[in-house]
Write a protein that binds this DNA or RNA. Structure first.
Lengths: 207, 207
DNA sequence: CTATTGTTTGAATCTCATCTCAAAGAACTC
DNA sequence: GAGTTCTTTGAGATGAGATTCAAACAATAG
């Protein structure tokens, strides 16, 4: 007798995706600390019971939100890089810098990411996501730097890896202050300072 | 008739100080999200009622914890700077870098600070503290850089202010990853990279 | 000492979000 | 259509923590 395929295997993945999106919205609005099942349910237009049906452990849902935010952020940076003219390493590096800093204190994409990163200190899963994000951002920068060095546009002051590390860390530092409403770190100024640093380590004046 | 000075004006400030210290401990142990009045009371060795007696608004207490953490952190950096040999700008700068990075993922002083900084996005009071901390750290670095430039030990690649900004942001970026358990950012490596950056912008090989 | 006000406590109460669950509804197989 | 499983709901149980409060206690003035 065959284990027959019966019943109602609907669009679990679609529902889950909707819940992840709704949870991201709820976190953006009320913060990670004040996150309530009700908010997620409301944002998704379903009942509280449904949320629990798909995610008996809320932490799993939050982890999915983090994963989604990381992937979408990386995709948007990759896109920014790809859309800049391939023949101009400086333009591509600039595109990376622009895509890596929050545009304002209320930038919701960056805001959500920083919120979720907070959990990394206490949750290995979140730490892993943050580690992966960092490594892939470093990879993006390292590629951009190496291409520039290969074409002669850049003269690297150290290994592409190390410089890429520094750029990502610098970005993260400024980004943290921007989303934290540090009045002394205006987005435009942060952008200038990161670019100045990039200029210094690549020896490329046109940055 | 004189408004007579009667009653029991005891050591309110001492009690408050004790509560602030206890709250800092509780936050370190359980995180800002999981902070319970009971934890604070236990850490301070008093009843829950006493905590509310002094801080009807828990937020006020948390803000005091933040203020205390900022002041003590700045004092320790100032001390590190002062204790390094006054005649050696490179040594003083190195001392600043060392005091600005968490020694490990479990560094409780840095961990507490990053925890508290999280509130800055939603609370003006916390944002102000973070802004003040940043400005004063920039001041420390700027002084160190200017002294070095004045004595000829450093050749600054840009204004001391801008370079100091960059150093603090870099530190914060690495610090964030360290306390977040990003496995790719080891404290020792972060220290090396910050020093390399300092070396690059000061032109001082002995850093 | 006594009155007065500051301090502390712990138990009772309130609040609010999570968790549980039985029943209703929906899609799919046969 | 009948049977089966998946899905959704909402109301009530549960529970953790905040808040209230009256009573006990302490220190100081006079």
């Amino acid at each position: 007798m065959v284990m027959s395929r019966v019943g109602r295997p609907r669009n679990q993945t679609a529902r889950r995706q909707a819940l992840v999106s709704a949870a991201g919205q709820a976190i953006t609005e009320r913060g990670l600390e004040g996150l309530r099942i009700k908010d997620i349910a409301d944002a998704a237009g379903v009942s509280q019971g449904s949320v629990l049906y798909y995610y008996p452990e809320l932490d799993d849902l939050v982890l999915e939100v983090h994963r989604g935010a990381v992937e979408s952020f990386l995709a948007s940076r990759q896109r920014a890089y790809d859309e800049a003219p391939a023949g101009e390493p400086a333009a591509r590096l600039r595109a990376l810098v622009d895509s890596g800093l929050p545009g304002s204190a209320e930038d919701s994409e960056h805001g959500l990411l920083y919120q979720l990163h907070r959990r990394a200190g206490r949750s290995p899963g979140h730490a892993e996501l943050m580690t992966s994000l960092f490594a892939r951002e470093v990879g993006l920068y390292a590629t951009a730097l190496e291409v520039g060095a290969a074409t002669g546009a850049f003269t690297l002051a150290a290994s592409a890896q190390d410089l890429a590390h520094g750029l990502v860390a610098l970005e993260d530092g400024y980004g943290l202050h921007i989303v934290s409403h540090n009045a002394a770190v205006r987005p435009e100024r942060a952008r200038e300072l990161v670019l100045a640093h990039a200029r210094a380590v690549t020896g490329c004046p046109s940055l």
